[in-house]
């Protein structure tokens, strides 16, 4: 639920309403504040209010029984001194970087390919998109069974997997989570890139052809630059998705071995709903909110996304 909600907020749609009209364009007929009212009310009710409640809870000690008891900064002091918390932040960062690095090239290539006119393209694209239709829980259970060291793939391919202790080592467990994340989310980002690639005006390619540019040159000089905004959107979604990854960790590794895949979102769940320490859990949730916001801001600033008004680069 968190994942979906956060993704929706992170989408580019949210910021369009407050952006001032471009000079020279008439503001007549553009949506006003009233248009945003329903979404704003829902956002306030289901995002801002809970966020404020979480902020208050982070200064209390509460097990879900009785009333929350105000404890000042105690939860925050616990978190700062907690080695697992620090480790979980590094792990989350690692998951984000690895996720972006593995998913972006693959989904750009697939997306651009799927936007073309090749034979069988529609059929193959449909097959590629199947993982998108499965729930994270189903995907995790599926891969968990496929990767059983004795009765799954590793048991059949000992030359590749050794003793099959994939989920029992940190590198193996992280590798599995990144791979499953890639398998699960690449179709989604492929879809975004496909849509964007289809929107690139054919006239650009025609002009390039006349100038003698080959396919590779066209890809690097036209397609990639034109996909810049899409890439930023897609990467922000990956970053936020990576920060809030939860089901796959819960089902595939349960944060293990030890705490080696306990990423921040999973640690928040552990503290709040397994250890029933809603105070510390809320504090971790706030850290997540702050980190996600900071990362999004940095991506937007660095990429110059905030200065672009046209969705088509250079046109």
């Amino acid at each position: 639920m968190t994942t979906l909600a956060t993704r929706r907020q992170a989408g580019p749609g949210g910021s369009t309403t407050s952006r001032p009209a471009r000079p020279g364009t008439s503001s007549v007929g553009r949506p006003g504040f009233a248009w945003a009212l329903p979404a704003t009310i829902f956002f306030a009710l289901f995002a801002l209010v809970p966020l404020a409640a979480v902020a208050v809870l982070s200064f209390t000690s509460w097990s879900g029984l009785g009333d929350p008891e105000f404890v000042g900064l105690e939860n925050w002091e616990t978190l700062i001194a907690d080695p697992v918390m620090l480790k979980s932040l590094w792990l989350s960062l690692l998951f984000i970087v690895l996720g972006v690095v593995t998913q972006t090239p693959l989904s750009i290539l697939l997306g651009v390919w799927a936007a073309g006119h090749q034979r069988n393209r529609a059929v193959l694209s449909a097959i590629y998109f199947i993982p998108l239709l499965l729930s994270s829980a189903a995907i995790s259970v599926l891969w968990r069974a496929l990767l059983d060291p004795n009765f799954g793939l590793p048991g059949q391919l000992p030359w590749l997997f050794g003793d099959g202790n994939l989920l029992g080592t940190q590198a193996g467990a992280i590798g599995v989570l990144i791979f499953v994340g890639m398998w699960q989310f690449t179709p989604f980002h492929t879809l975004i890139y496909q849509g964007a690639a289809k929107g690139i005006p054919p006239v650009l390619y025609q002009a390039a052809s006349i100038d003698g540019a080959g396919m590779m040159r066209q890809f690097f000089s036209i397609t990639l630059p034109q996909l810049r905004n899409t890439a930023i959107t897609s990467i922000i979604l990956m970053v936020v998705g990576g920060l809030t990854t939860f089901e796959t960790v819960l089902i595939l590794t349960n944060g293990g071995p030890g705490t080696d895949t306990t990423i921040t979102a999973f640690y928040m769940y552990q503290e709040a709903f397994q250890s029933f320490d809603f105070g510390v859990g809320s504090a971790i949730a706030l850290v997540l909110v702050v980190v996600a916001t900071l990362i999004s801001l940095v991506v937007v600033k660095v990429s110059g996304y905030d200065k672009m008004n046209s969705s088509l680069e250079g046109l």
């Binding site: 060291p149 004795n150 009765f151 003793d163 099959g164 202790n165």
Partner: peptide, 16 residues
């Protein structure tokens, strides 16, 4: 053995 950390009872791994 060496790979017990990847085996579960609940999904039928260790009983099998």
């Amino acid at each position: 053995g060496t790979n017990f950390d990847s085996v579960k009872f609940t999904d039928g791994g260790s009983p099998t």
